[in-house]
Design a protein around this nucleic acid. Sequence first.
RNA 1: GGGCGAUUAGCUCAGUUGGAUAGAGCGCUGGUCUCCGGAACCAGAGGUCGUGGGUUCAAGUCCCACAUCGCCCA
Length: 554
Amino acid sequence: MKQVLVKLLEQSIQAAIDKGFLPPVAPPRIEVELTRDPGHGDYASNIAMILASQEKKNPREIAKTLLEGIEDRDGVLEKVEIAGPGFLNFFVREGGLTTLLDAVERQGDRYGSPDLGKGRRVQVEFVSANPTGPLHIGHARGAVVGDVVANILAAVGYQVFREYYINDAGNQMDNLGKSVLLRYRELLGETAEFPEGCYRGDYIRDLASELLKRDGERHLAQDAANVVPLFTDYAAGAILEGIKEDLRTFGVVFDLYFSERELYRDEGVEKLLRDLEEKGFIYREGEALWFRTTAFGDEKDRVVVRQNGAPTYFAADIAYHRNKFLRGFETVIDIWGADHHGYIPRMSAAVQALGHEKEALKIILVQLVNLLRDGKPVAMSTRSGEFVTLREVVDEVGRDAARYNFLMRRSDSHLDFDLELAKRQSNENPVYYVQYAHARICSILRMAAERGVAAPAAGEADASLLRLPEETELIKAITRFPEVVEGAARTLEPHRLTFYLNDLAALFHSYYKSNKVISEDGALTGARLFLVRSVLTVLKNALNMLGVSTPEKM
RNA sequence: GGGCGAUUAGCUCAGUUGGAUAGAGCGCUGGUCUCCGGAACCAGAGGUCGUGGGUUCAAGUCCCACAUCGCCCA
């Protein structure tokens, strides 16, 4: 329908040019949008105002000419009006919009997934928490945002690869091993002072006692320097397994856990440095090696190899990104905590220095989560071991509520997460509102089946019977879905889906309240079942993208 | 001191490349149930979109300055 109107406008503009009313310029991109206000018709275009500003003419006058030039040979339009500063408002003939529902029926679970990606390969890297402790609530938001961004991109035709970067080569890992060793000795009667940087959570003690059980006391006699690596490996391995398990429970599954150590094993960092040096981006100052990130707009150059000869975290990170592109990804998406925003210019510089477009790296910043219980903040600190883990949150509020709540804000804005609110099964909790709409429609379809009224197949229903304003609104909302998905994919903003879902569910609940789907009128019942099933399809497709379940009963 | 981001209803926040009378949820006030699921619906109150300039047919949206807050860096 939209394309039809665009076509009509194109022809009208051409006619105006032929008549000499408009100069023969390349016409701008014509925008036709579904209206929000029924008083503005079904579709509207601002093309007259665009042309007016180009040609320095009165917009309403241009609109008038365009209006007269529209030749609606197929009779799809009831009328066209000029409104406000020069909008063209299109009123579609009664029942004319209902053909839009055929697309839903035809495409089923593919509806709302336009093929934008054409199979291009995208990698999404997220969570990437150091395996020094269980994931906590702060990681949960990044996990969901990454997962859903990946889902959306996959839905619109990209080939998506999900990856977790394990930062397991730094001295934080040493601290982890030392921490476990200290607890191990403590279990054997030694008293220990915990130095700065060590981890004190209960899980450290658990790991120590597991190791004691497995290996006995034999590590006690040895020199600390000799046994720390063993403790580190054991602890990191066990913690990582726990992280994977927690993520699975949360519905997040990665294609690959990529270890930072791999980069050193395959000389990835050395290769990177040679690569950059050949391109002239590396210089020596003092004993350190510097990377000329200022060549790409960073505010100052960055050290990649320290005076002591050790590569920096940044160097490993560049090597990792080089590795990503070598594996053939066209676009690489990183999801970071918002406190890392200062890191963006240098990473962007690195990617460009490696010869890629700036746009090949996209970074999504995820803001901190304020965890609340009944409106009061819950104190957390990783060091002291006081934090609410991802696992605890999922166990307490459930996977669906947790995921949905993390998607209700733009990812770069702060989010209050209230445990009690997320648990409540009431109108304060939006996830149920949307799922309830889904369950209700399932219930209607069950009821219809029980009464022997089959929901009509495509083409069988006379959708032109759907003439109520509420029905038109529902159809428009359904029609908007592919555009919403496209917008969410383009901007990498999953929250657009939750807002859309709330709108759609509200329209449905309202419609349901004041209209009977199943009635004595067989033809009308068929048409309404058809409509309601379209709503169901959209709800299901959208919730699937969010990784939230679609219960048929609640 | 420099950089980035934010400032929209009592609270938490949306506002799609500048479009028509700025929206939603919660909270508040008052209503709806002989009917397919009340985890629902309807109505109402509530706004100088931080302040002041600028750009244009049109600014919450773009530009400049300032204020406040947050984060990063020195």
